[in-house]
């Protein structure tokens, strides 16, 4: 087993993100159903969400380079998920140690 298994998964993740420009642009299952059944037009975007930094997995400043924009947005997103979950991991560990000390069996 590699010393830092999560590092290998991050490498695989980066490779997967590089494939993002090749992703199908067809509507996904729900979008297709919404369009077939005629409720697609109901969709709205909350005002707070209008300020999302990378709408539709793209970086607004790089709108002329669609592929690059998507890859960079994907890398940023993967990093954000990774860091957020590292925070969660730390919280889970910290709380666990606390509770274990509190309820240590004799």
């Amino acid at each position: 087993m590699p010393k830092r298994p999560w590092l290998w998964i991050l490498v695989i993740t980066a490779v997967v993100v590089l494939l993002a420009p090749l992703a199908s642009r067809l509507p996904d299952g729900l979008q297709r159903v919404a369009s077939d059944l005629g409720f697609e037009g109901r969709a709205t975007t909350a005002p707070a969400q209008e300020r999302a930094p990378m709408p539709g997995y793209s970086i607004p400043l790089l709108s002329s380079h669609a592929g690059l924009s998507k890859v960079l947005a994907g890398l940023a997103g993967a990093l954000a998920v990774f860091l957020a979950l590292k925070g969660v991991e730390a919280l889970l560990r910290a709380r666990d140690h606390g509770s274990r000390q509190g309820f240590r069996r004799p």
């Binding site: 998964i9 992703a23 199908s24 067809l26 990774f82 979950l85």
Partner: peptide, 24 residues
């Protein structure tokens, strides 16, 4: 492993694959 697996699943979710019938 939660962080790395989450990042991987996030990346994999970006890769829409076509299914028969014009949907992905």
């Amino acid at each position: 492993m939660m962080g790395a697996m989450g990042a991987f699943v996030f990346a994999a979710m970006m890769i829409n694959f076509p299914v028969p019938g014009g949907t992905s």
